[in-house]
Nucleic acid binder design. Structure first.
Lengths: 207, 207
DNA sequence: TCGTCCATTGACCAATTGGTAAAAATTTTA
DNA sequence: TAAAATTTTTACCAATTGGTCAATGGACGA
């Protein structure tokens, strides 16, 4: 029996890996992969650089660990899209959830966006094997809703793209929004606008 | 008289600065500011590194030059939004223009997105003094249309954000889209979807 | 054609980078 | 508590980075 030795991590390991990943998230999301340095991450985590490398095999491993953990969290709201629920409310709920995530976890959104922006060189596999199947399945759910006449005839694929784009925009382009809105908090009006927009798109005409 | 010597650039200067900026666009947009190297840009431009630095004062200057030139091109379609035209058609035309730009000039879009993502540390002033006034002015135009009953009552600010987000998404998240659509070209269906979405949002109910 | 200015190069540099090795300190286990 | 295992540090390194400088090569007008 080839038993893979999966020792449970010590308290110190759990704590330090957490410290490192937290620090790394900030550094990677504000400086990008290329601009981030192990020194900056080490400093942020309150550890020495060689100590960092005791817990992770290198810069890339920290980065990829972060991204794949992130992808899971990020996919959750999409998973929860319930085929049995009311189509319009399910989708508006999804919009709401994604917007809340973007507003509450902007660094995570930026980290992901930065990786995709650069061609997703380090997570293409994750996208293919985790995101894609879920995406296809949820597109089918939406198409079924449309076929049942419970949703206006939209393009499921591009509907999802539009939801992702508009919600994540509030995290990824936060710096631009800050300038344009003189640092006012966009949250409330953004939520209202997105609900209005997607409702007018999705509500079936014959009611 | 403090006369600034604005010699017109020689043919060689024009050519080489162009070569450098073209190469820099590719390098910066795929590697990010931090990940980009002068060596890579020099190689891409077919020049030696010291030769690069003969034309530009340093990495940052190349980058900022690129970004500010870019911002102008990028703002053009918004400028063309005509207060005298038909509101819905003007806005849908803007969507169309922005989508076409994103599809045709993805590197430019990515470069800009990358800078904003990192907090816009090098172009905040440009945003404040060029983008913001234009943005405010066009928001007023949209509000006037609404007040005149020629457009559904939307939030002008967030309408523009949604247009930017959805169109640029096809450039900035192209890598993700490629995976999800198995490399099919999204252009046609994206255009159709965006028109449907924004039309259903913008068309005034009383016709 | 000559001299002046522009363009280009090779050699170089200090600082920073990701990463290593081995010893020292600390925690856990028996 | 002593040995074993884990964690941390100190000292270090080779490669890469953005950038300089003096010397050389070319373009071009007088």
């Amino acid at each position: 029996m080839t038993q893979i030795p999966v020792k449970k991590p010590s308290r110190i390991q759990t704590r330090n890996r957490r410290l490192i990943l937290d620090a790394a998230l900030e550094v990677f999301s504000t400086d990008g992969y290329g601009g981030a340095t192990l020194d900056a991450i080490a400093k942020g985590a309150g550890l020495s650089k060689p100590n960092l490398l005791y817990y992770f095999d290198g810069k890339t491993e920290i980065y990829v660990t972060l991204l794949s953990q992130l992808l899971e969290t990020w996919l959750d709201p999409l998973i929860e899209l319930n085929p049995e629920g009311d189509p319009v409310e399910e989708l508006l709920g999804y919009v709401r959830n994604k917007l809340d995530m973007a507003l509450e976890l902007p660094s995570e959104s930026k980290l992901f966006a930065g990786e995709i922006l650069q061609g997703a060189p380090r997570i293409t596999d994750h996208l293919k094997h985790e995101l894609k199947p879920l995406f296809d399945s949820k597109c089918r759910v939406i198409q079924d809703w449309i076929d049942a006449g419970r949703l206006a005839p939209v393009d499921p694929v591009h509907l999802i793209f539009s939801i992702w784009a508009t919600t994540q925009h509030y995290a990824d382009f936060g710096a631009q929004i800050s300038v344009l809105l003189d640092d006012q908090d966009p949250a409330a009006r953004a939520a209202k606008h997105l609900e209005q927009m997607f409702r007018s798109l999705l509500e079936p005409v014959n009611h």
